[in-house]
């Protein structure tokens, strides 16, 4: 039998990522623009959160509308531990991630008793409870006044209070996220998630334990939200309940849709494009959604696969000979 296993795909899909990583790492040596750093750092933080949503929506086909709530729990855990208890960020951050994963598991135990749209509504309700609790629990979270003066982390002589150094911290975090998500996607676990998205009944009859798979991907998703949230807390230095609410969830959802749900590049691409676009329509401020709302609808109507999906479709439409040649080439 000369039957080769799946063609070796790891190399061709891996190298553009390495290129991007190297470019991103080199650029700050030549460019010293704090405004650009700020945009880039924000993009990277929210891209991590978008990856967290993508493992649920893109891989398992579940719409988790409490996502910003977990982002908030991660952020507030880091904020409270460093500010009120004087913990080191490097201890508080992992703890925040573990806490988010544990709470994600708890939510999943209840939420996965429901399916599809009820699941989405259920998590939306949980998201509101999280925001409202953060908003009302004055003594812990500072309530309406928020948490002020969260210090930027230090590592030896490295001060991440400087935008340039924080850029690298965020870059490492994002690279780690993409690396791990790519691993999950290629794994037996990841393939089983895709199977669940494709049809729960078939997944079940193929012998996949749908419930435990959903629980585990929920934990991964909320852990990534907490990962991003912790980073956000020390970068911005101030936390208010608003960032943990449904509108943040919907914004992350928009990033994901623009970039391409269920793709590896989608979350980063979408966050980058919308965040940059938002810089241009900043004058609109609260009215941004006059533009972004219809954009969301048009995307769902006409480009449900997003930009990354469009790219795949264009590739797929090329003549096969050409495709094979270029695949062999890279």
């Amino acid at each position: 039998m000369s039957l080769a296993p799946t063609p070796a795909r790891s190399l061709p899909t891996g190298w553009p990522w390495l290129l991007v990583l190297v470019l991103a790492a080199v650029v700050p040596i030549f460019v010293h623009n704090n405004y650009l750093f700020d945009v880039a750092i924000n993009v990277m933080i929210f891209a991590i959160a978008a990856y967290g949503m993508n493992v649920m929506l893109g891989y398992a086909g579940l719409l988790p509308l409490a996502h910003a709530g977990f982002f908030g729990i991660g952020a507030y855990t880091v904020g409270i531990l460093t500010l009120k208890l004087g913990w080191s960020f490097w201890l508080a951050w992992p703890l925040a991630i573990v806490l988010c994963a544990a709470l994600g598991l708890l939510l999943g135990l209840v939420a996965f008793r429901t399916r599809d749209d009820v699941f989405a509504i259920f998590t939306l309700g949980v998201g509101v409870i999280i925001t409202e609790s953060i908003n009302k629990w004055d003594r812990l979270t500072g309530g309406n006044d928020g948490l002020n003066g969260i210090a930027a982390p230090k590592l030896g002589s490295l001060d991440f209070g400087k935008a340039a150094s924080f850029f690298y911290l965020a870059l490492v975090a994002l690279a780690l996220t993409v690396f791990l998500v790519a691993r999950v996607r290629a794994s037996l676990f990841g393939k089983s998630l895709i199977a669940i998205r494709g049809g729960e009944d078939l997944a079940r009859s193929a012998g996949i334990n749908v419930y435990t798979h959903k629980l585990r991907v929920m934990m991964l998703s909320t852990a990534l939200a907490g990962f991003a949230g912790g980073l956000y807390a020390v970068y911005i230095g101030f936390l208010g309940a608003a960032i943990t609410g449904p509108s943040t969830t919907f914004t992350i959802l928009l990033y994901l849709l623009v970039g391409g749900v269920g793709t590896l590049a989608g979350p980063l691409l979408g966050t980058l494009i919308i965040r940059v676009l938002q810089q241009f329509i900043q004058g609109l401020q609260d009215y941004q959604y006059v533009v972004l709302g219809p954009l969301l609808v048009l995307l769902v109507l006409f480009f449900p696969a997003g930009l990354a999906g469009l790219w795949t479709r264009l590739r797929a439409n090329r003549p096969p000979a050409l495709r094979e040649a270029s695949d062999a080439g890279v």
């Binding site: 290629a186 037996l188 393939k191 199977a195 012998g207």
Partner: peptide, 13 residues
Amino acid sequence: HRVRTRSGLWDAL
């Protein structure tokens, strides 16, 4: 064949 395997999230990561 997934039903005969035990690898989970940690194995993937």
